[in-house]
Amino acid sequence: MADDRRMSRRELFRGKVFKPLREAAQRGAVAGRAVSRQDISLVLLQRPPGAVAEGQFLASCTRCGDCVTACPPRAIRWAPPEAGEKRAGTPFIDPIRQPCVMCTDTPCITVCEPGVLRFELPRTMARASVDKLACLAWRGQPCRLCVDQCPMDGAIELDEANRPAINSEACTGCGVCVQVCPAPRNAINHRPLSNRPFWRG
């Protein structure tokens, strides 16, 4: 999937490439895109890939932290107490801080003994779309960071004018595009899934 234009995973993890652009993206996310302790109780949480339906997830997750420890880029975090009694201590991903990079071996699923992360379920974590009013490319400025850094082939496509659009069939909602977007107001609309499938295995 990766090609020469994309930064290595290690560079993405350490944040040494495009650091000024990432900081600009974070400044653009001040209006509630980064999940703060103040608003976390009010928002949907992005669960790791392969997560079962939210009710089933909350009932079966043991808060063991194995997926948090196994995640190579440290994208998976524990939800703080402010997330609410039922969700506190459960694993989630905040892409502004560190997105999922779609590891090919998906170690978070491998180590999940309670089975709330499953290989049998889709890896899709969120839905994403491009805000054309905020996107630099759609405003006539050269930018293709989201395309170049996306870990999923075909998830972000360029039109004839080199403007990005997200292909929902290929996008997993990992959040890499959210983190690297350099627009003053983050141009990626990103919403965690609220209707993940119930596991009946």
Rank of each mutant, 00 (worst) to 15 (best):
P107Y: 09
T172G: 01
D131W: 12
R196C: 04
A128C: 11
G175W: 01
Q149D: 07
G154T: 10
V147S: 06
L145D: 00
D159K: 00
C108G: 06
G115P: 06
P114K: 01
A137I: 03
A170C: 13
C143N: 13
A155R: 10
C112S: 02
M152T: 15
G173K: 04
R127D: 10
P142T: 12
N189K: 11
V130K: 02
K132E: 15
R123F: 13
T110N: 03
D159M: 01
P114N: 11
N189Q: 11
L117S: 05
P107A: 02
I109F: 07
M125W: 00
K132V: 15
Q141Y: 12
T124K: 15
P184S: 11
N195W: 12
P142F: 13
C143H: 01
I156S: 04
L136M: 10
G173S: 08
K132N: 14
L158S: 11
H190V: 08
F119I: 07
I156Y: 07
R118E: 02
P184C: 07
R163W: 05
Q149H: 09
E113L: 06
C108N: 05
S194P: 05
V176R: 09
N189G: 14
V111A: 02
P164E: 02
G154F: 00
E157D: 10
C150A: 06
S194W: 14
G140L: 02
E113F: 13
P122L: 00
I188M: 01
S129A: 12
A183Y: 06
A137Q: 13
A134F: 12
D131G: 03
A165P: 08
R144L: 09
P197F: 03
S168M: 12
A183W: 03
C181D: 08
M125E: 03
L117T: 07
C181H: 03
L136I: 04
I109C: 09
G154R: 01
C112M: 06
R185G: 09
E160S: 13
G115M: 14
P114W: 00
T172S: 05
T110S: 07
G173F: 08
P192A: 01
I188H: 00
G140F: 04
S129E: 09
L133C: 08
L145I: 11
D153Q: 15
I109G: 02
L193R: 01
V180K: 08
L136Y: 07
P184K: 03
V178P: 01
E157M: 11
G115W: 05
S168T: 14
C174Q: 00
V111Y: 02
S194K: 10
L193C: 10
V180G: 03
